[in-house]
Every structure is written in C-alpha cells, then in structure tokens.
Nucleic acid binder design. Structure first.
Lengths: 250, 250
DNA sequence: ACAAAAGTGTTATCGCTACACCCATGT
DNA sequence: ACATGGGTGTAGCGATAACACTTTTGT
C-alpha cells in the first residue's frame, strides 16, 4: 500500500524527490489546514475586531481570532463561512481570503497552515450565537488590541492593510454601515478605516457625485444637533457603473 | 498513542469537534501543501510566463507552473524560493504570496493545498538551469496561454490581477526591466502590464517628476531611430520617499 | 444662548489630458 | 526622403483643497 502510493505519486506528480530520495508520499500529507477569521465591525466610533477567549492551552485565557481546522473533505472558503455562522447567524457575508500563514513552528501540535479571511459586518446586525467553543465573544477596538494568541496580531495587521487597499477601489464601506446612514457616519467610517481626515464639504461632493447613494427621505432623530439625511446604498447603480468600467476612488 | 494525541488536541486546540465527535486528530493532518510559482518576465514586447512541460500523469505533456510539495519542516516562503532556484540560479528574487487554493478535488492524489507566489524578473537576467523535473522550460506570452495543467490558468489570472493592483502603488516595474532602460521601454512595460495606453509626454513628466530615476549619461545604440537616454532606478531615493510617507501612483 | 454636527458656496491652485511640434537615427 | 520612436511646450479643463458661512437640533 505504501509502495503503491509512492508509485502513484511518481506517476501523478512527476516530481523528482519521490523517485530520487524514496521518501514516502505520506511524509508530505502531514499538514493540517485551518482558517482564521478577521471579522471587523464598525460602531460609529471605532473599527472593532471580533475575538473569542481561549478556554484551553496553549494561550489559555488569551483573546484569539475565531478559527477552526478544516475538514479534509471541506472547501476552505466554506470552512471560513462555517466559523462565522457558528458565531453569529449572519448569512451571505462575504469572506475574503487575504493571506496564508505557514511558519513551521506556528502551532505546537504540528504543522498547521492557516488561511486568513476577513469580513466586514455592521455591528448593529451582529447577533452572537451560543457556541461551545466560543464562550466569550467580544469586540475589541483594533487600535487597542492586546497580545493575541498565536500569530494572530500579525494576521490582523495584514487584514487591515489589505482592507485599506481595497477600500480605495470598492465601496465596501457600505458593508460596515447600517442600511440607512448619514454622510457624517460614512465619512467617519472612512476616516477610521483609512486613518486620515477629510474635509466635510469635499467628502460630500465626492461621494454624492458618484451617484451611488439614494436619499431615503428620512432624517436622523434623537441627536443633539441638526439631524442628517439618511441615505442608502444603491447597489444597482454600483453594478451598472462596474459594467461601464468604473473605479471607485477616494 | 492515538488516544494521547486526541487528548492533547483537546487541551491544545480547545476546539469542540474533538471532544464531541471523537474524531481523531489524525483525521485533520491529511493535507499536503504545495507552492506554485507564477514567474513573469518582460521582453520589450510582451509579458511572459515561465512554464514547464509536465512529463508525468496527470496532464502529461501540458504546460504547468513550476511548483512543488512543501516539506513538513520547510517554510512555505522558502519552498517557493527553492522552486525558483532549482530553475534559474537567480538569487534574492522577491517572491510575493498572492492567494491560496484549496478546492477539495483540485488534485487527484489527495487533498493538496497550494499557495500561489509570483515574482518578476528581467528576461535578460534569466538563465535556466538543468532540473530533472523540469526538462522543458519555456516562456509563454500571458496573452496567449494554452490550457495549463490543474487550475493553473486560474492561478495565473489571479496573479496578474494582483500584479496590476500592486503596480499602481509600488514601482515594481524596475524588477522587470534591465538595469538601464529608456523611458520608452518603461512606458511600454506599464502599458503591457496594465493593458492601457499612456500619453508619452505625460508619462515622462510623471515618472521623472517622482525623482526615482537617475540618468546614466549613456544613450541607446543600434536603434533605427533617435537613441533614448538610459536611466537607472534610484533605490535610495525610493526608500527615503517611503520613509516620508509617499505612494507611487500612475 | 450655546455646542455640535449638518449642509452649502466660493476661490485658487494643482494636476492631468490632449495635442502639436521638433529631434536624431537607420534604411 | 522617410519611418520610427525620443523628447518638449502649452493651453484648457476638471478635480480638489481650504475655508467661510448658514442651518437645525438638544440642552
């Protein structure tokens, strides 16, 4: 069986090492695969990261990204969605793969490759679910993260970098905002994510000039200042702009 | 042993599945990891992909990306460099990870996750090496690729998309050009990679305005038109620009 | 009255586009 | 002479930055 597998390796892969070094094919099938999810939520003030508290060694008690091992018969994109679904009951959240981490010693139990995904959700849509492996779920301001388990700090930083790049080209801000929002909220979101300041007047002109927002006719209420108009994202307009070759830019 | 390993899984990972479903930890360590390298070279006319011809099943005779399985004790970034070194004798080539592919049925021999890397090299620096698993190495114009082995077409397309994004923010064009080059060559490169056309005068003003190029004082020779000035990339100037927070933009 | 954020208009400047034009070389 | 790409100047347009100002709410 061992021998047969090795032969088929040679036939199938045609790689040199098998024929020359007579290393068993099984030696190469020793990896485990996991997904780690950088779930970001925005709450009017700050960008926040969803973390769980680890209840086991190693790194017991530390905060960690929600993640799990991938089953050998499971697609990794689906595994990432599964992790999110076990935590939140959100459906159809877009999980974006951004980087993979394969350092030899990153996990004590063996060689575990992890694939990083991020997703953006509105905090007001978030409804945590009971999950036996995630007793303590919390949001942490990404600007004030403690030391997380494993190499999760590094993973988060890379996700944020990747997010910033993407924000400039796609109107993903909408995924982080409630269905109806004011331009002030939107500006605040962009300023938070990109870590810059915009001039109010100019920001409004630019955003409204894109024609991607619809007035809902409603106004904010219960705010200690002049209430702002509530807008919603016009997805149809965005898609037709994409057709005609358009790039969203800030 | 089996039992012991399972216990340690519970302690170490603290994940639910082990405790509840009593699935052996070994079930999760069945993955193999490979790297596939999208090596791009530019030759004055077109952007080209380095491919090898497969000498074994499956996909025998088809062109494929150079790639290999990663050893269980090998870092995957280093594995990617190893693949390139076995092919070319180039040193210090920057390999950039861009995406990972983990579809369950993507490889007939088992669950093989592959991590895609790309690198950019000047064709004039390229010196192919003898490699028993890569008998036939060739450059193919990326605009005229045949059907490649496995999911390699998809991988190449993603690499090119990723490259385009990066080109706009970093002056990676220099990695693809000879040490000394004319502005015309540079413009041609950018037009090829980004698949756009630039106005000559404006391109020059923009590029020269960045202060990243140095005149070498030399001129082109043996060209059937007015010889162009040869420039070289001023890496120091680029690095000090990075320090002061600058973004290269086209 | 005041704070605080919504919302608008103006101006000056910068960058980019488009286009026209000249230059040097090989055939 | 001509084709080919190198190399430069400029006029006009449009986007953007900077800033001042008015409006509407809650306290």
């Amino acid at each position: 069986m061992e021998e047969k597998k090795e032969n088929s390796l040679e036939k199938v892969l045609g790689h040199q090492f098998s024929a020359f070094y007579k290393i068993s094919i099984d030696k190469f099938f020793q990896f485990a695969l996991s997904v780690d999810c950088v779930i970001l939520g925005y709450n009017e003030e700050s960008l926040n990261l969803l973390v769980i508290e680890r209840g086991a060694q190693p790194h017991i008690g530390k905060m960690a990204l929600p993640g799990d091992l991938v089953y050998p018969s499971e697609d990794m994109d689906l595994a990432a969605e599964r992790v999110l679904n076990e935590l939140t009951d959100l459906e159809d959240v877009n999980m974006t793969q951004f980087h993979s981490y394969g350092q030899v010693d990153r996990h004590p139990i063996g060689r575990v490759i992890t694939v990083g995904y991020y997703s953006l959700i509105s905090v007001d849509q978030f409804e945590p679910l009971a999950s036996s492996w995630a007793d303590n779920v919390s949001w942490l301001n990404v600007k004030k993260l403690p030391k997380l388990a494993f190499d999760h700090n590094e993973i988060v930083q890379e996700a944020l970098r990747s997010l910033k790049e993407r924000v400039r080209l796609q109107p993903i801000g909408f995924e982080l905002l409630p269905k109806e929002f004011t331009l002030g909220q939107m500006q605040n979101l962009y300023e938070t994510v990109l870590e810059v300041k915009f001039d109010k007047a100019n920001f409004r002109k630019k955003i409204l000039g894109m024609g991607l927002l619809e007035e809902t006719g409603k106004l904010q209420s219960d705010v200690p200042h002049r209430p702002g108009k509530l807008y919603s994202f016009n997805k149809k307009a965005y898609e037709s702009l994409l057709q005609t070759g358009y790039t969203f830019e800030l």
